[in-house]
Computed example of a mutant assay.
Amino acid sequence: MTATVAELTRELVAVPSHEDETAVGDEIEAWLRRETAADVTRDEVGNVIARKGAGDRSLALVGHHDVVEPDESQLEADGEYVVEERDGRLYGRGTADMKGAVAAAMLAFRDAEPAGELVFASFVGEEVGGVGARRAIDEGFAPDYAVVGEGSTGYSSPGVTDVAVAHKGRRASTITARGTAAHASEADAGENAVYRATDAVDVVRDLEPPAVDAAGETLAGSVVVTEIEGGRAWNVVPDRCEVTIDERTVPGERAALERVEEFEGVEWTVDQDLPPMRCDDREFAETVLEAADAAQSGSPELVTKPHATDAGWLSEAGTECVICGAAEPGEAHTADESVSIDVLGRCEETYRKVAESWPR
């Protein structure tokens, strides 16, 4: 039996999962079958889902076991991941994002006497657009409530694990302007695609991104031109120009980027759309906050996060979500990624307390 959240985190982190999550999914599935009497399933894409307890409403503890590509310093000679403990922290790819929180959720799931149906879910493909979460939802995964273990530590003050009740989404899109090529010495014989693209960019610059209130804060969207490419020679009027847009979305309205298509020869396409999240059940959010408060000496708050998570897909499908996890701002995806062992224990306790008090 794995005794501590630190030991289980070490076991999960050591298994590579940036190209193929199968092996670490095997570890999670085997542990759940060995340590619990829950109904454990594994779907075709590799999501691991377990259920126990009963009731009219369900609570899910949600994470993901894929990671981004590790730095060379995070790899052992045999291809496994380096996991080191120093000064009360575990270092290695996936410690913060987010195998540590997955380990905490596994232990809480095992030990809790749930108030209703309790679900554990660890998804694949979060880092590449929520592949696993979307597949699970398409196959009927629909908990009433979810605590998603993405990072929420250090938002209100250093070292405090807060509860995030909203986050932004991300819509990536491309403006494609087409014209007619001509020799630059006879520019009027063509239609300059770069000029058409810059007309569209002027529209983007003038857009007012929407904003919403959440947790006493204003969660504001943004729209930014991040790349532009056009032309093929210094003496040719360009017949094509592409502009890349990074848009951070909020629940509700979107920036009216479709307006750029009012220009002749301009087309707008959406390449990726990761949904935002906002919890509209204040009682649920306060219950998770009370559990987090009881598990630590600091005073957690309801906060917002700037980036998208699988909570967005769940929220879009109708699940009331909050985010509560050990990772701190700036830890994920770094060459020295790490997580506090004490905070992992705090998360384990928080998840268990929520599972035993919610749904009410």
Rank of each mutant, 00 (worst) to 15 (best):
G230Q: 08
Y195K: 06
H183R: 03
T180G: 06
E247I: 10
T249I: 03
G221N: 06
R205C: 01
A197K: 10
R248L: 06
G179P: 00
P251A: 03
G231M: 15
E229S: 07
I245C: 01
G216C: 12
V204E: 05
E186G: 04
R232T: 15
E208T: 15
H183L: 01
G190P: 04
V212K: 05
N192L: 08
D202G: 05
A184N: 05
E208P: 11
R205Q: 11
L219P: 11
A211G: 08
I228R: 11
E227C: 00
G230D: 03
T249V: 12
A181T: 11
N235C: 09
G230I: 01
A215D: 05
L219N: 00
V204S: 07
V194H: 01
G216D: 06
G216P: 14
L219G: 09
V212E: 09
A211Y: 02
A215L: 05
P210H: 07
C241T: 14
G179I: 06
A214P: 05
Y195L: 08
R240M: 02
T244L: 11
A184L: 08
A189K: 08
A211Q: 12
G221T: 05
E217W: 03
R205D: 13
H183P: 13
E186R: 09
E217C: 00
I228K: 09
R178D: 08
V212D: 01
W234Q: 10
T226Y: 14
D213C: 08
E208K: 06
T249L: 11
V223Q: 11
A181P: 14
G230H: 09
W234F: 12
V224Q: 14
V194S: 02
R178L: 04
R178N: 09
P210T: 07
T249Y: 02
T249F: 02
T226F: 13
R240V: 12
A184M: 11
E191V: 12
E253T: 13
D246R: 06
A187C: 00
E227L: 13
E186M: 07
G221K: 11
N235P: 04
E242L: 06
A256Y: 00
A200P: 02
E208W: 04
E253A: 15
S185A: 15
E247G: 05
R240A: 15
G179L: 07
C241A: 09
A177T: 08
A215C: 13
T244E: 12
C241L: 01
L257C: 07
A256V: 00
G231F: 01
P251D: 00
E227A: 08
A220L: 05
I228T: 10
D202W: 04
D213P: 09
A187W: 12
D213H: 02
V236R: 10
V201C: 07
